[in-house]
Simulated assay, not measured.
Amino acid sequence: MSYWMYITIIVLIIYVIISVAIYYLQDYMLFKPEKLSKDFQFNYANQDFEEHNLETRDGAVINGILFKPKKKSQGIVLYLKGNSKSIKGWGKFAVDFTRHGYNVLMVDYRGFGKSTGRRSQKAIKRDLQVVYNKIKEKTTEDRIVLYGRSLGSGFAAKLASMNSPKMLILDAPYYSLTKVTARYAPFMPLSLLIKYPLPTYKWLKYVQCPIHIIHGTNDNLIPYKTSVKLSKVNPKRTKLHTVIGGGHKNLNNFESYHEMIHDILNLNPEPIDLTTTSIHVKHSSKPSRAKA
């Protein structure tokens, strides 16, 4: 056997080993769950909340917390969190919506917090649709706001594409999870290996409600340009909100972020009559010459 043939075989073996490792270990790499005991007591100072459990058709239990506003409800925000911890810690962000008069429902994905069941992309999508259907039993869809943060942005986009919520808000979204992981393993066949491709861009095409995308310019995990690209998928329904200097985990520390949330939740713009604007006026490329 020649030297180069030997090297080629070694490289192929290593390549296969890495591929197998990515396929079987991706759950551990993508998800960073915090598990809670069944008798764990949630505690949020100065917040009115109640705990709920929803049993799925395959016997899993999805645990969630409903935060209630102190004033008359304007609707409900279904908050789909990121890939780490549990709603025990994420609950502190509910105040950003309850202060505007919205109920906030946060749920833990399978294997997070008190939620149980075997995790898969299909199972999580099915669970969230069941949760959405339960919300519809209590209120109308024009009062439901979907908010997806990081990992949750893909699931929120999928839900919005299958239903008719009031609006969809994506916080630091990804074009697809395959694209995100490709930054760290550019030479691997990730389209074949990733069990959670979460193609946000595909689902956004079918969203019929207003879409608001919030992203920080200094996000090192999911680059800001991702949201610029996503904003072009369904441009007539999408508005991109830029947090100058914002990173991936600190948008809530910026005053501009809270101003954006305020404007998004409270703004009720009237449609613009484009016939009364200069939309069709074109600038002359060459200066016209005065006639003698």
Rank of each mutant, 00 (worst) to 15 (best):
Y3A: 07
I9W: 13
I14P: 07
I18P: 03
D27R: 15
D27L: 13
Y28F: 07
Y28P: 03
P33K: 14
E34V: 08
E34R: 10
L36E: 14
N43L: 10
E50A: 08
N53L: 12
N53M: 13
E55W: 15
R57K: 08
D58G: 05
I62W: 01
G64R: 02
I65T: 11
L66G: 04
F67D: 08
K68S: 01
K70Y: 10
S73L: 00
S73H: 00
V77H: 01
L78S: 08
L80F: 12
G82K: 01
N83R: 09
S84F: 03
K85P: 02
K85N: 13
K85E: 13
I87N: 14
K88P: 05
K88L: 12
F93G: 01
F93W: 03
Y109A: 04
R110E: 03
G113D: 08
K114C: 06
T116N: 02
Q121T: 13
K122P: 01
K136I: 08
E137M: 11
L151A: 05
F155W: 00
A157H: 04
M162Y: 15
P165W: 03
K166P: 00
M167E: 05
L168T: 00
L170Q: 11
Y174I: 09
T181A: 06
A182D: 05
A182V: 13
A185D: 06
P186T: 10
P189S: 06
L190I: 12
L190P: 04
I194K: 02
K195E: 00
K195P: 00
L198I: 08
T200D: 03
C209G: 07
I211E: 01
H212R: 11
G216L: 14
D219L: 12
N220I: 11
T226I: 03
L230Q: 09
K236C: 00
T238L: 11
N250P: 10
N250Q: 14
L251G: 02
L267T: 11
T275W: 01
T277G: 03
H280T: 15
H280S: 11
P287Y: 08
A292P: 07
